[in-house]
Design a protein around this nucleic acid. Structure first.
Lengths: 69, 69
DNA sequence: ATGTGACTTATAGTCCGTC
DNA sequence: AGACGGACTATAAGTCACA
């Protein structure tokens, strides 16, 4: 199971559902725009803390970002 | 929200429910024994990939490790 | 608005030990 | 069986210029 790909898909899906750009979400989550882009492409292996910040910015629970489809 | 503390509590609870030692779980998850100990004490900030390996070793979904109580 | 490579610094993660 | 520390090495965190 490639968990980074799961996180990537969930972050991208939820971000678009909320009508946010990568730039806006990155700003909310207080992470760099290019770093968020890397996460959405599954090229990064973020820590639990970063996952939590992104979840908070998306207004969802951190565990939601690990749900596979 | 301190997600590392949430992970710590969940890993410890599930490991004990399954009657495993830290040593056994660390071996199953292919992570270092002392590192797993640090995670269970909330002193570490593991990556999503490590979270997935621990979840697999515990026989649960990775998102379970982020459920708060 | 996003993808990418290269980069530096911080810390994840391992291995040795002691208590 | 588990907490904790020191000294490492690998990689995450965070940033940039440019496509």
């Amino acid at each position: 199971m490639d968990w980074n790909a799961v996180v990537a898909a969930n972050v991208k899906r939820l971000r678009i559902e909320r009508g946010l750009t990568q730039e806006q979400l990155a700003h909310e989550a207080e992470i760099d725009l290019t770093y968020l882009g890397g996460i959405e492409r599954g090229r990064r292996n973020p820590s639990v803390e970063v996952l939590g910040r992104i979840a908070a910015a998306l207004g969802c629970h951190a565990s939601s970002l690990l749900h596979d489809g």
